[in-house]
Structure formats: C-alpha cells, structure tokens
Design a protein around this nucleic acid. Structure first.
Lengths: 226, 226
DNA sequence: TGGCAAGCGGACGAGATCGTCCATTTGACC
DNA sequence: GGTCAAATGGACGATCTCGTCCGCTTGCCA
C-alpha cells in the first residue's frame, strides 16, 4: 500500500515470534467468539500456549488484538464495497454488499462485537481511506436510486442502521442463522423502490465513518521500546 | 392476582426499609442507564445513599435488581400486547405493539439491556402467563393476516427478530432516536402484505417466550433467612 | 559452533468487584 | 418512655483481571 514508514511489520520477527503471533491471533478469534470480546487476555494467552507477556508484547492493548484478530474480516467488508461499486447492476451490488457484511457478522463469531467496537482512527491515511469508502458508498446509493431499484428516500445512514441492528441481532442470537437471514431479507425488501409506501421518519445523522468499510492494515505491531 | 402465597411483599417492610427500597430502584435505573446493566452494585448503593448490605438484603442478585428496576417497563410491554389484542383493527394493534415496545427500548435507557437479559422463569405461574402471552400474540398475527394487512408469510418469530435487532440498534446508538424510528418504520413497512415480493428465507425457530411480554410481578423480594 | 539480542513465561503488585459479617442504630408497638 | 426485632452501613476477605518486571531460553548469524 505504499506505506513504508511503518516500522517492523510482522515480517521482521524471529521465526518463533512469528509463529506465536499467529497462534495468538488464532486463539483470540476462538476465545473472543466463545466468551465475547472482553474475555481476559490471560485466557487468550493460555489458549495460544504462550505467556501473557508475549501477548502483551505483540498486542499492547485489547483493541490492537481485536483489530488484528478480525483484520481479515474487516478487509472483506472493505473489499465488498469495492466489488459492489464494480457491479454493473447497482442494486445487485448494493444487495450483495449488505448480504456479504451481514453474512460475515452471522458466520464469524466474535466479529459482530469487533464490528461495533470503536477503534480510534490511528493514521491520517486511514481516515482518508474511510472518507473514500464513504464517498464510494454514496456513489453506489445514487446509482441504485437512479436505476429505480433503491427507494428514493433511502439515506446512506440507513445502511448503518441495517448493519448495526443486524449486528445486535446476531449478538443476541449467535446461533440463529435463520433469524439473521430473515432480517436481512426484510430489510433488503424494504429498501427496494417498490416497497416505498408513505413517508419515513427523518433519517439518522449517523456518519458511516464508524463502520469498518475501509481496509486498515493495522496489525497491532509496534516498534519495541519506544 | 390471587397470588397470596408470596411471602413478605414490600408492603410489610418497615417504613425506612420501604423508603430505601424505592431509593435503590430509582438509583438502579439511573446507574444502569448510565453505565450499563453491569455497573457495580456498590455504585447503585452509593447513588441511593445506602450501604451495600442494604442493597444485597433487598435484592440478593443483580438479576433481581434489574428485574425490579425495570418491572414497570416490562409490564408496559405486557400491557401493550393486551391493548393490541383489544384493538378492533388488528394491523393497527400490531403496529402499535411494535411501536410501543420499541419506543420503550429507545427512551428508557438501560431497559434494552434488561430486555435481552435472560431471566429464569422463577414461578410456574409466570411460565403460564408467558404461554398465554404467546398465544395472544399468535391470535393477533392471525387476525392481522386474515384482514389482509400483515403479510401471509410473516412468522411470529419475526416479531422477536424485529425487537431484538431494534434492541441491538438502540444499544449501539443510545442517543440516536432517528435511527431507531427509521428502523421501526422500515420493519413495519416490510411486514405489510403489499410489501411481499418474492419468498423470504425460512423463519427462525426462536420461541417468543424469552421476550418480556408477560407481567411477572416479581419484585426481587425474598423472605429473610431461608 | 559460539555469542548475543530477541524472545519467552511466570510471578507479582495494583486495583476493582463481589457478597458477607457484625456491631450499632432506629422504627414500631406497648 | 422502654423494649426489641428489623434494618443499617462499612469493613473485610476472596476472587479476578490487568499489565509489568526480570531471569531464563532460543533462534539467528558470523
């Protein structure tokens, strides 16, 4: 990504350290899925077969661990937006975008909690990516509306409303895939132009920035001994 | 309610104890709203101006406190169902029911967390009430469908899906009333018969029993020294 | 193969929360 | 006013989690 200023990526780690790092991430996904995102760090360490110190050295904060553990999922979300924009049928693209993100929330235990967790925008570069993602999404919405498929009174924040409410549902019912699919189907139907009957209440002012729709590339690494 | 077997309701408390009990409940609502349902018990006690021992004597577990603190809201939910059933227009009743419960979730901070919290069905009487509530709701659904207002493929579990997803939304965005109203509007539109376009995925098998739609009357009281 | 810096893990002190115990206070009733 | 059980509140020990410190180990490179 042309970001050569980052110091000491995981490539420069010693072989055993790199192995442990992968173990930790794998363990974190399992533990976070099982006990929630607030599970004790020591549990993750034990599961990974490493000491707590090793865990803390690699991921100084819980946030860093969570980000790194679900980085792949976050990237999938970001990629889904790019793919949606590339779809010649904008409604198809929109629909696939919603379905992809929701499927990820549904299938990847622990990811929903990470999805709603507030991560500070660490880098200016990342903030830029988020703004770009927001613009991309607005373009997608405008196209789908112009095509007469997405209802005219759909507001970009409705996307956040859909994802956050779905997130809440799968958090409450982690095993109920039918419920999740059902909600997604209802929401997508209600977003279609022909579903518009009467006026909706005013849209939310919620910015989309908080959603993980931009690849962030942060891996929880940090130079040793600042 | 013809339930004379319960021992020592709050009426038999000494005057100071009754006063403290009210203070605790009031403090609990404030603290739970502010810091979530997992706020330290000591915080509630301090806010109420009582010692922790007093709090624990009245409400031996956190669940008991939560139940009692939001008993009024739970009852409002239960009453909403009764009123919905009494409405001559079943769709109107259904719509009002959804809106009432969601408004409660939206406006009463801390209630959403209590809404999804799992409380054991302590009494057989209460289990009976829940089953009755479930039957009532199914009657409402059937009537609204027969009237041609509610879509034929609406499944009772979709009600739980709606409430739980809305609950998740207001938990994620406690201050964003517009988002909450927007979701409710979308969901209600998609439940209308004329919104049905194409088949929905299979409904969830989730029982409605877990939702607080039956008045439970439990007040967190218990006879001292079993 | 030997040196050494990177890496490791367990112990540990700090801080938070839980739920109980008990000496003291206070309201209700005579 | 006097009696006494109900009620009170703060102290306390137990438990849990955090994040760091430090002596030992090990992979890497010459």
């Amino acid at each position: 990504m042309g970001e050569s200023s980052r110091i000491a990526g995981q490539d420069s780690l010693r072989a055993d350290a790199r192995r442990n790092r992968r173990r930790i991430l794998s363990a974190a996904r399992v533990v976070f899925a099982e006990h929630g995102i607030d599970a004790p760090m020591a549990t993750v360490a034990r599961r990974a077969g490493v000491g707590v110190a090793t865990l803390y050295r690699r991921f100084p904060t819980r946030d860093a661990l969570v980000r790194a553990a679900f980085a792949h999922q976050m990237d999938t979300c970001a990629r889904a937006l790019t793919e949606a924009l590339a779809d010649p049928d904008p409604w198809q693209g929109f629909q696939r975008l919603v379905e992809t993100v929701c499927e990820l929330q549904r299938e990847e235990r622990g990811f929903p909690a990470a999805f709603v967790a507030a991560f500070p925008d660490s880098t200016r570069e990342h903030a830029r990516l988020r703004e770009q993602a927001e613009r991309d999404f607005m373009t997608l919405v405008r196209r789908a509306q112009a095509a007469g498929a997405l209802r005219a009174d759909f507001h970009p924040s409705d996307f956040a409303v859909a994802l956050l409410s779905h997130c809440g549902l799968v958090t409450a019912l982690p095993d109920d895939r039918a419920a999740s699919r059902r909600l997604v189907a209802y929401l997508l139907q209600s977003f279609r132009a022909e579903a518009a009957h009467g006026a909706l209440p005013a849209p939310s002012a919620l910015p989309l920035r908080s959603l993980p729709l931009a690849a962030d590339g942060s891996q929880g690494q940090r130079p040793s001994r600042a």
